[in-house]
Amino acid sequence: MTPALEVSGVSYRFGERLALDSVSFTVEVATFTALLGPNGAGKTTLFALASRLFDCSEGTIRIFGGDLRRHPGAALARLGVVFQDQTLDLDLTVVQNLRYAAALHGLGHRDAARRIERELSRLGLAERRNEKARRLNGGHRRRIEIARALMHEPALLLLDEPTVGLDVPTRRDLIDQVHRLCRDDGIAVLWATHLVDELDPVLDRIVLLHRGQVRAQGRADEVLAAAGTADLRCLFDDPATVAP
């Protein structure tokens, strides 16, 4: 089966600094894959490339087989993104933010209204629909951003450290919701994080990124077995010990 996301030999430089070095991995359909790495590992750069904020200098990124650089429209139409920084327009209401996102994907008024209601219900935010984004707390803003990323019914969802700044129960709730999306709706998820406790070592796949290089990838328990440890934290604390 064609992978939802295929990153092949991607490199990227910021001037002299090599931020990503021949990064290759795949995210399979309907799987939850965690992109693990400490701060500065290159996760956010990879997300910027995968969402085509800018093009990679080397390598290719394919979304459901479509080359992101050659056919960006078709690829981006199947992609939903939640960035690390909050990207809601704080002066607009929840519904206005979602309607704007729907319009950017060419969804008509009726279709947009139906999907807004569905996503708000699914994420438990229906009663907040007319509040300005500015008045929502961090957890609710994150959920609205996820709802926004789902407006055009993407088959691949990228989330860049979406739990930053959230308390533990809210984090857990958000992770569960995204796992449900993956399980119930068959959405492929790439979840960037530096928090190993956000992972399910049996169910989730991991891609371990360190200093711009992929150090390990596979099902979390398999990667642990290969590294000779039972604790994800060991893997994460010293990723350089894992053979690339």
């Binding site: 969402s51 085509r52 904020l53 960006p72 429209g73 078709a74 690829a75 981006l76 139409a77 992609l79 993104v81 960035f83 920084d85 909050q86 990207t87 809601l88 327009d89 704007y100 996102a101 950017l104 994907h105 060419g106 926004r148």
Partner: peptide
């Protein structure tokens, strides 16, 4: 602030946006 990213990840061509 980051809200530009919502615009730039639209599937429509960048020149059009």
């Amino acid at each position: 602030m980051g809200s530009m990213r919502a615009l730039l990840t639209s599937p429509l061509p960048r020149w059009y946006l």
